[in-house]
């Protein structure tokens, strides 16, 4: 089953307005909830080497420390703003990207070529965490809404509505961007300038190769008498 989207604006909003102690308590509750839902995840995290990773959402006033490995139970805590102790590694990015990472939608390779995600420090710690999260089907949506207890249904409905509006907007944006893509418009009509462009490109390539060949010939002519002991 495909996990649903937990709307990032809502998370951002809630986390910005919530006072630190409320947030800390909410994190504890979510962690306990996840431990019940994903015992294997916690077992796998404990098996890793011990690491502390700082998570710094660029669009939030808070930072978090995630501690796992070394045969101890993993936990997350809110970092005191004055706390300067560095972690083994640090992940920076906006809430949207971080939520995708947590739910296994960004992979080990993409970690390094995804815009808007900055990894610093011990890269192995982040890869270990990413790979371990990927072993689980994590649906934050379900985990968060189930925390509302009797209010789960209304909460789900509210979240779904926000999520849907957001998805629709995203879909429209994606369609628009698609329509701007050069290859798609070219495929559709293949106007004359495309052929001309390709012909010119080919000609340029041929000329570049010819120049390179001539340059090499010149170098070889000069270099033939060179002492091979000269490196």
């Amino acid at each position: 089953m495909k996990p649903s989207n937990l709307p990032a604006p809502l998370v951002r909003g809630a986390m910005t307005v919530a006072p630190p102690f409320v947030l800390a308590r909410a994190i504890d509750a979510l962690l306990r909830k996840m431990e019940r839902a994903h015992p294997r995840l916690f077992k796998n995290l404990a098996r890793l080497k011990p690491y502390v990773i700082h998570v710094e959402p660029s669009d939030l006033p808070h930072r978090f420390a995630l501690k796992f490995g070394g045969d101890e139970k993993a936990f997350v805590r809110l970092l005191d703003p004055r706390d300067e102790t560095p972690g083994d590694a640090c992940i920076k990015g906006n809430i949207d990207v971080l939520l995708n990472l947590l739910q296994g939608r960004i992979d080990g390779d993409a970690l390094f070529f995804t815009r808007g995600l900055v990894i610093a420090g011990d890269t192995a710690a982040v890869v270990a965490l990413r790979n371990t999260l990927d072993r689980e089907e994590i649906d934050l949506f379900a985990d968060v809404t189930s925390m509302f207890g009797p209010l789960q249904k209304p909460a789900e409905r509210a979240l779904t509505a926000i999520g849907r509006a957001r998805e629709a907007a995203r879909h429209r944006a994606a369609e628009f961007i698609d329509s701007l893509r050069e290859d798609k418009t070219a495929d559709a009509a293949a106007p004359a300038w495309v052929n001309e462009r390709d012909a010119l490109k080919a000609e340029l390539k041929t000329l570049q190769t010819r120049i390179a060949k001539l340059e090499v010939r010149e170098k070889l002519a000069k270099g033939a008498s060179q002492d091979p002991a000269h490196s």
Partner: peptide
């Protein structure tokens, strides 16, 4: 290729 990549990939 890509055992190091995500299940989504």
């Amino acid at each position: 290729e890509g055992r190091q990549r995500s299940k989504a990939y």
